[in-house]
Simulated scan of single mutants.
Amino acid sequence: MGKNYMPEVAKMLGVEIGEEFDILYKDGTATEIGPFKFTNETILDCDGDELQCWRLCCLLTGEYTLQKRPWRPKEGGWFYHIYGNGGGVTAKFFNFNNVYDLALLNMGNCFPTKEAAKAAVLEMLEKFEEIKKGVRE
Rank of each mutant, 00 (worst) to 15 (best):
F94K: 10
D49A: 15
G48Y: 09
G14P: 05
I82D: 01
Y80Q: 02
T31S: 06
K68E: 07
L102F: 02
Y64A: 11
E19N: 09
G28A: 11
D22P: 13
K132T: 10
N85T: 03
D27H: 13
G87K: 06
K133V: 03
T29Y: 07
F36A: 00
D22R: 08
M107F: 07
G88K: 11
W71K: 10
A91K: 05
E75C: 03
T113S: 12
G84Y: 00
G84M: 03
D22A: 12
Y64Q: 04
I82K: 00
V15R: 07
A116H: 01
Y25F: 12
D45W: 01
I33Y: 02
N4L: 04
G134T: 01
V9F: 00
E137Q: 08
L66K: 06
M12A: 14
N40E: 01
E137G: 11
N97E: 15
K26I: 11
E32Y: 11
K133I: 03
E63Q: 14
L56K: 01
D47A: 14
F128G: 01
D47T: 11
C57F: 13
G88P: 04
L66A: 08
G108A: 06
D45C: 13
F111L: 10
L13P: 01
D47C: 14
K118P: 08
D22K: 09
K74S: 13
A116K: 06
E8W: 00
D27V: 12
P112S: 09
G76K: 08
E115V: 09
I43Y: 04
R136F: 05
N40V: 00
E115L: 12
R136A: 10
R136D: 10
G108M: 06
T65L: 00
C46Y: 06
F111S: 01
A91L: 12
P35G: 13
L125K: 07
Y80S: 01
N98D: 15
E123G: 13
K68D: 04
M1K: 10
I131H: 09
D45V: 13
G84W: 01
T113F: 07
F128T: 08
C57H: 14
K127Q: 12
V99I: 13
E126P: 05
F96Y: 15
M6P: 00
V135R: 08
N106M: 10
F94R: 08
K132F: 07
E123Y: 13
L125G: 08
V15N: 04
G108N: 12
G2P: 09
D49Q: 15
E19D: 13
F38I: 00
G77H: 03
W71D: 06
E129N: 03
L24F: 08
I17F: 09
G14K: 10
N95R: 08
V121H: 07
T39R: 01
K133S: 09
K26H: 12
V9C: 03
T29S: 14
G87D: 11
E32A: 15
Q67L: 08
G77N: 04
R72V: 13
I23G: 05
L66P: 04
K92I: 09
D49F: 11
Y5V: 06
N95D: 15
V89D: 13
G28W: 05
D22T: 06
L122G: 07
K26R: 14
M12C: 07
V89H: 12
M6F: 00
R72F: 04
L122M: 12
K132N: 12
T29F: 10
C46P: 04
E126R: 14
E137W: 01
D45A: 12
K26E: 15
W78T: 05
N106A: 15
C46Q: 15
G108P: 12
F111R: 06
